[in-house]
Design a protein around this nucleic acid. Structure first.
Lengths: 337, 337
DNA sequence: CTGAAAGCGCTTACAG
DNA sequence: CTGAAAGCGCTTACAG
């Protein structure tokens, strides 16, 4: 038996397809009680499910929001920040009948993406990685599509029309962490960041440096391949070998901080007595290891939710009300700094 | 300026919409070189992006696959197994021009999901949690939709038409772990599983029990709230208080194993000398903590990829070739058992 | 309260 | 090689 459509249901109920359409869409005025029941019964009996392609074509609305995650790794979802952001976004949209179309794209292949080449969604959300030039180019490409854009964790650009930038307050989080660390009166600090820098990292780095340097702490910045625990350890270890042990290690995220702690402990240094260590983004999996890391609780889920809300509001109106939103972040005092 | 459509492009290039359609879809026979170039130039100049709703309506194909993740937690993506499965599925589909529509659903609300109430995708993938009755009901509901189904990590059911079950070999993984642990000649073993049991856990539990009991190890099974590290520790701690320390603790996943290790160490027991501990699914974040846990590397990414491939093959043919696929899993020897 | 009709953007079998 | 036409499933302004 073929899939029932409006005509099938209309014939079955003995009414027109216009009437069925109204009933199905919850239009209740201008429908008699008897007709309503007849139609509802037919819908149930035939198992009718409206085809969104038909409505989408008619209304030019698809009720689907795209999320493009530009990341070189096939496991582009692996980061808990990303994961929580996607969950928040997806839940917000789902509850309102909107779907989330997930699309991981490798940096060089953005223009080959079907999200770019075809019109498949009502609006696009962007989560980018890579160098700032790559990210700028990617953003521009998406802007050129003429679809509403919600961009996560990027510096807002005035020149970009019909876009909204949704960020967490990485600067404030890093500032809080730096102040916490300052209580121990450090003389030297090591900031360890990934070799590929994205805006959130830049903000954290800038806040760390500003606070520490204004307190006359000697700051060194180290870059490492953050995807590889051994590479992180090697980078930090090599630095300590030549420059000596710092009083503080500030990781750009929890993973870096954890490797640093392990390295310090292997070398007989106590955390935080000898060296204070901080992370960022409070990876939930660390709760199980009981590390009690001093870090910052990310607003990832809330970012996703907010982005979803802004996008849906945008679709109801002419444009985004505000260009930028910054969500607060919460320090987790922990026991390592 | 309104979004260009087939008519805009056709007018601009001075050809019919049929010709533009062919060019855009890569139909190259029956198109002259001159026409081809004219159309391509117009497409580029106008920035034409085919509207999938139009094609979808015409072909009754949407090029979108749905993934329903039924989970009580709003952070339904948090588990690394899920995350990697989604990444594998998404990547496979994306590379073939298919979108992945992600939808997290709370257990009681499955029938209110737009994936159920409307026709929005070409096929559905399912990742369920909850009790076996809940999962059976949910599966049935989706089966009733008459759309192709790929079900991950569920026991295949003969009575379900047009569905394919894609699993990892949890039984074999657990068997390997049990054999590894047996080398230490344990007398007592503790198996710790989540209080909500899903099929993969049942398979692990069954294999653990079978191997250990046939080696005359006294086995105790403990259930705990796996989402809460303290709850895990309390459950295991209480058991040890009354029954004494087991020779082996087999966790149903890495998180449980890590909490167990921590608890043992806090109580002065050495791992693995006094108590061997194993996990499951090799959560990648544990690499950073350097725990070197004895566990099993999950095939989650490969499961997702395979599921995607099977779904797309199914869409090209009349039905799934096989009802079930089981992917091998790899033991990670580690240093805790 | 109800329905006929137009049309959203596209594909495809067919005629020329 | 090219295009006119039908029609995919639906919504909506309008006439009755």
């Amino acid at each position: 038996m073929a899939k029932p459509n409006l005509h099938t249901v209309a014939a079955h109920a003995g009414v027109s397809i216009a009437t069925v359409s109204k009933v199905v869409n919850g239009v209740r005025y201008g429908i008699s009680e008897a007709t309503l029941e007849k139609v509802l019964a037919s819908v149930a009996e035939l198992g009718y499910r409206p085809n969104r392609a038909g409505r989408g074509l008619r209304t030019l609305r698809r009720s689907i929001i795209g999320l493009a995650i530009v990341d070189p790794s096939p496991a582009f979802l692996a980061d808990p920040f990303t994961t929580n952001l996607v969950a928040g976004l997806s839940n917000h949209l789902s509850e309102r009948g909107f779907g989330l179309l997930l699309h991981g794209i490798k940096p060089g292949q953005v223009d080959a993406s079907f999200l770019v080449k075809e019109t498949v969604v009502d609006g696009l959300c962007l989560l980018l990685s890579g160098s700032s030039e790559e990210r700028r180019d990617t953003t521009r490409l998406f802007v050129g599509l003429g679809q509403p854009l919600v961009v996560f964790q990027e510096a807002p650009s005035e020149s970009i029309a019909d876009a909204c930038f949704v960020n967490q307050d990485d600067g404030a989080g890093a500032t809080a962490l730096a102040h916490q660390v300052l209580r121990r009166g450090p003389k030297t600090a090591l900031i360890v960041i990934p070799d590929i820098v994205w805006p959130a990292i830049e903000l954290r780095l800038a806040a760390f440096s500003r606070i520490l340097e204004s307190a006359e702490v000697a700051v060194t910045v180290l870059r490492c391949d953050e995807s590889n625990p051994d590479a992180i350890a090697d980078t930090i270890g090599a630095h300590i070998d030549t420059a000596g042990r710092p009083d503080v290690i500030l990781g750009a995220n929890d993973n870096i901080a954890i490797v640093a702690m392990r390295l310090l402990q292997a070398r007989g240094a106590r955390v935080p007595e000898d060296v204070a260590v901080t992370g960022f983004n409070a990876f939930p999996s660390n709760d199980y290891a009981g590390l009690n890391l001093t870090t910052v609780r990310s607003a990832a889920y809330a970012l996703g939710e907010l982005g979803g809300r802004l996008m849906l509001e945008r679709l109801e109106t002419e444009g985004f009300e505000k260009r930028e939103y910054t969500l607060p972040v919460q320090i987790v005092p922990g026991a390592t700094a």
